[in-house]
């Protein structure tokens, strides 16, 4: 569900063969577009391709560089922020340790021979344990953030307030905001640092890959074949929650083994009732008032482990 009737367009990877311009045309967005490329980190301003693709009408908000300015100008806050990030990393480490054991238990249960009703019950209980752990981790992250916010009230600090005022002005003057992919944790961090969500109300949004993940309620890290062995999908943190009821899974064409039914079933059941959506390159959809339209090439993963193209309403 979308907070207002504005359109939010989620897209697959834009690096090669982008579809962003097409989506903007479809919505009749003709004016300036603010871009957020903070997920690219130091390469944030290497956005020539994006600017050219959108017809030289973009204004890069440079959130990564602006954060560096804040950290330079306000070292006390920088140190506190760094300490909070270390705390969040610890939480993530411990969550991952516990999660791997829960997933291992689920794997063992799945392969046991036992009466069907017992197996079904134990399997449900095992999935519930994983869901509980996911929720617990989200709560811990939320506590860390809330404590930090209460203590530091950072949006009121001079260095940040100054940057926020500039950002508010820029965003206020554009027709839409486009949020690129990249490092999702860093992107989320910068979006939160500047309280960007406050300025997005009513704006048409375009977001792809990590950007699309950041707009959802929960950011799920996933990769079925990392070099260190089978990867376990893990909850990173809450997203901005501007798009509800879905889990965004970009680059699904090479990150998810869709034919491994048991594996994708576990994933879909873990995050239900949210719907897991694989978003390969060139996929996209428009979300408006809890309805999908202009759906292209999105893969919906069902709780029984099957997958099929996502159906959407016509525009």
């Amino acid at each position: 569900m979308v907070a207002a009737s504005r359109a939010i367009v989620l897209l697959g990877a834009q690096r090669f063969n982008p579809t962003l311009g097409e989506a903007a045309d479809e919505l009749g967005v003709r004016g300036k577009i603010a871009t957020i490329t903070a997920g690219w980190q130091e390469r944030e301003t290497e956005d020539d391709d994006l600017r050219e693709h959108l017809g030289e009408r973009t204004i890069n908000l440079r959130l990564h560089a602006r954060a560096d300015v804040i950290f330079r100008e306000d070292p006390e806050f920088r140190d506190a922020h760094r300490a909070r990030q270390a705390l969040l990393r610890h939480r993530q480490d411990f969550y991952r340790i516990r999660l791997e054991h829960e997933l291992a238990a689920q794997h063992v249960i799945r392969n046991r021979v036992a009466p069907a009703e017992i197996l079904a019950e134990e399997s449900r209980a095992s999935i519930q344990s994983i869901r509980d752990l996911d929720r617990w981790h989200l709560e811990q992250c939320s506590h860390v953030r809330r404590d930090f916010e209460e203590k530091w009230k950072w949006v009121e600090r001079d260095a940040i307030a100054k940057q926020r005022a500039e950002l508010q002005k820029i965003i206020g003057d554009v027709d839409a905001v486009a949020i690129a992919g990249g490092h999702v944790a860093i992107l989320l961090n910068r979006l939160e640092l500047f309280g960007i969500a406050d300025f997005l109300k009513g704006k048409t949004l375009f977001a792809w890959c990590a950007g699309a993940m950041a707009l959802s309620e929960r950011v799920i890290l996933f990769h079925d074949t990392p070099p260190q062995g089978p990867g376990a999908a893990e909850v990173l943190d809450a997203g901005l929650g501007l798009v509800k009821g879905i889990v965004v899974l970009p680059q699904s064409e090479f990150r998810i083994k869709l034919d491994d039914t048991a594996r994708v079933r576990t994933m879909a059941q873990r995050f239900a009732p949210s719907t897991c959506l694989g978003m390969p390159a060139r996929s996209r959809m428009t979300v408006r008032r809890n309805r999908y339209s202009h759906v292209h090439d999105i893969v919906q993963i069902a709780v029984d482990g099957t997958h099929a193209p996502l159906a959407g309403e016509a525009a």
Partner: peptide, 10 residues
Amino acid sequence: FPGPLMFVYE
């Protein structure tokens, strides 16, 4: 030393 592979989506 896991790299940022799980974190980067672009």
